[in-house]
């Protein structure tokens, strides 16, 4: 019942790939401890719309080519922070990276994020990352009785820490930090960002404790202001700036 034009386009789609599709090579870092102790590169050729995301490419591989490819993703819309990976050498969310933006004429390399133990393919052990997150007590701490209504805050007070509330804990920043690569003891940018979110919250009363934790030898003082974290953050948080603000708070508290 369709018009002749539609019939024609449907017919051409069966015979050859539609014109908007391009051929892209995905070069994926594969690791399976049940087969080998070595990680290897594997190439996949895909016919894909350049306006699709890297995650769509990975789905295509997993669903149509090789079901053993393992990676994390949940919401696939840049909110859950599950699919941070190293794409063309840069930490990004696979679900927020369009193929046309990362030069599809060359092979697109996809690796697990660095500095964390690779469990399989693109899945890493996030435990050290979340350990550092827990260590900074990322929850509201107050004294006295609970108020009968919500804790009010002025718009200016809210604005103070607005940037660091955007964190989705994807670990793109922490796993882009060279200090974290070399020494997993460093708290890492993500933990400091989430400490910053409560240190500068006017309603919170444990800022002192958090500053004391970050004053430690593996705390903010190990930051070399490399700015890798700010570049890597898929939410556009000014991570290095937040770390510097914690440093300044520590110094002004002291002097």
């Amino acid at each position: 019942m369709s018009t002749p034009t539609l019939e024609k386009s449907a017919a051409s789609a069966e015979s050859e790939a539609p014109a908007h599709l391009i051929t892209v090579t995905f070069r994926v870092r594969r690791f399976n401890p049940e087969i080998s102790d070595q990680a290897t590169w594997q190439d996949f050729q895909l016919e894909i719309d350049p306006k699709e995301r890297v995650l769509d490419g990975l789905h295509k591989i997993k669903w149509d080519h090789d079901g053993t490819l393992t990676f994390r993703r949940s919401c696939a819309h840049g909110i859950c922070g599950s699919d941070a990976m190293r794409i063309n050498g840069k930490n990004r969310l696979a679900c927020k990276t369009l193929i046309k933006d990362i030069n599809p004429s060359k092979p697109i390399t996809v690796e697990p994020i660095k500095g964390l133990t690779v469990l399989k393919d693109l899945v890493v052990d996030m435990e050290p990352f979340f350990q550092a997150y827990r260590d900074v007590m990322p929850f509201l701490i107050t004294k006295g009785n609970e108020p009968t209504r919500e804790r009010l805050q002025s718009a200016e007070d809210r604005e103070r820490f607005d940037d660091t509330t955007k964190c989705i804990l994807c670990a793109a920043c922490t796993s882009s930090c060279p200090v974290f690569w070399n020494d997993g003891q460093y708290f890492g940018p993500a933990a400091i960002v989430n400490a910053h979110r409560f240190i500068f919250d006017s309603r919170d009363e444990a800022g002192e404790q958090r500053l004391e934790i970050l004053n430690d030898k593996d705390g903010v003082w190990r930051c070399r202001t490399t700015f890798n974290c700010t570049d890597a953050c898929p939410r556009g948080i000014e991570v290095t700036k937040a770390i510097q603000e914690v440093k300044r708070a520590l110094i002004t508290r002291r002097f």
Binding site: E34, L116, T117, D125, P128, D183, Q185
Partner: peptide, 12 residues
């Protein structure tokens, strides 16, 4: 008998 995974540098 899986291969040993590479532990992160000085895990806590």
């Amino acid at each position: 008998n899986p291969a040993p995974v590479i532990a992160p540098p000085r895990a806590r």
